[in-house]
């Protein structure tokens, strides 16, 4: 362990109110610590720059999966294991379950949370592309009350998001309109388990008389944030799937994403494989 332990503070919060009060009394001083699956890796490597954390892991207000006729509401502390075990999610949001099953190993799936995955704001997260195409909304809370923001557009740049320092993600709302859609999810990570994605692709669509009606596409690891590819969606909407459509969609996707060379892969590979996966998805519709 390379971190100097005495420099760190992890304060337990007895209630959501107590956690939020701490965040608002000293803005920017305290940061939330949930499952710790990202923070502990940085800590171990001596690269965790922030030193003061409030432990929110035990807050019941941020737990649980609630189902109403219109929405499934996932508490921010919902773990990947919780996601996989939920029947409504299995039936209506299968890509979220698949993403959860492909994230880390069992220990990570037991500790890692959806709220943490969003707040960590990595462009390589496995769940965010699925949340984007499922039109998720986030409920943010602070001592001043709560507000809802669409997940699409929540991330504004690398590790940047539309959330104040005194706010916590309380829950994630998924509108229950996905069941009739076709779902396609593909994580490319070179090995079959325990991989960080090189490309992560999620899409839902509705095809009527071989014409694409509704379509939503999102990609991870190809830009500073996970992104909804709305321009590529526009190219595909109300089109029949044929060689010409596929070619146009590939071209538009290349304009819409901005992959880079990094320690895990190359820009060239990411671009080409993102296009290939898009084509694989479109071909699967016929």
């Amino acid at each position: 362990m390379r971190a100097y332990l005495p420099e760190y503070e992890l304060k337990p919060a007895a209630s959501l109110t107590e956690a939020l009060t701490l965040l608002s009394d000293e803005p920017g001083v305290w940061k939330p610590f949930a499952g710790g699956t990202d923070l502990m890796v940085l800590f171990e490597a001596g690269k965790l720059l922030h030193k003061k954390f409030v432990n929110i892991w035990n807050l019941p207000e941020l737990r649980g999966i609630e189902v109403t006729p219109e929405f499934v509401t996932l508490g921010a502390l919902t773990t990947y294991t919780d996601v996989q075990a939920n029947e409504v999610l299995q039936q209506e949001f299968p890509m979220l379950c698949q993403a959860a099953s492909e994230t880390g190993g069992l220990a990570i799936q037991n500790r890692g949370t959806l709220g943490g995955n969003i707040a960590n704001a990595s462009p390589a997260g496995d769940s965010p592309p699925a949340l984007l195409v499922y039109d998720a909304e986030l409920e943010l809370v602070s001592t001043q009350g709560s507000r809802f923001v669409p997940y699409n557009g929540f991330h504004t740049g690398y590790k940047q998001m539309r959330m104040r320092e005194d706010e916590l993600i309380k829950s994630i709302h998924l509108p229950r309109v996905s069941k009739p859609l076709l779902h396609y999810y593909r994580k490319v990570g070179t090995r079959k388990a325990q991989a960080i994605s090189k490309i992560c692709f999620a899409a839902v669509t509705q095809v009527d008389a071989s014409e694409i009606k509704e379509i939503r596409i999102a990609l991870g690891s190809v830009a500073p944030t996970v992104i909804r590819c709305s321009r590529t969606e526009d190219v595909l909407r109300n089109r029949k799937v044929n060689a010409e459509t596929i070619s146009a969609a590939r071209l538009e996707l290349a304009r819409e994403i901005s992959p880079i060379d990094d320690i895990r892969s190359t820009a060239r590979y990411r671009l080409r494989v993102a296009q290939n996966v898009l084509e694989d998805f479109l071909t699967s519709l016929n």
Binding site: V41, T190, R191, K192, I196, I263
Partner: peptide, 27 residues
């Protein structure tokens, strides 16, 4: 097929198991 030591100026920069990919049992 998997293990790629990424060098920068003579130093291995993917010196962690997250980024130096070895096959898992599933592979």
């Amino acid at each position: 097929l998997f293990e790629n030591v990424v060098w920068k100026d003579g130093r291995m920069i993917n010196n962690q198991m997250t980024n130096y990919i070895i096959p898992t049992a599933a592979d």
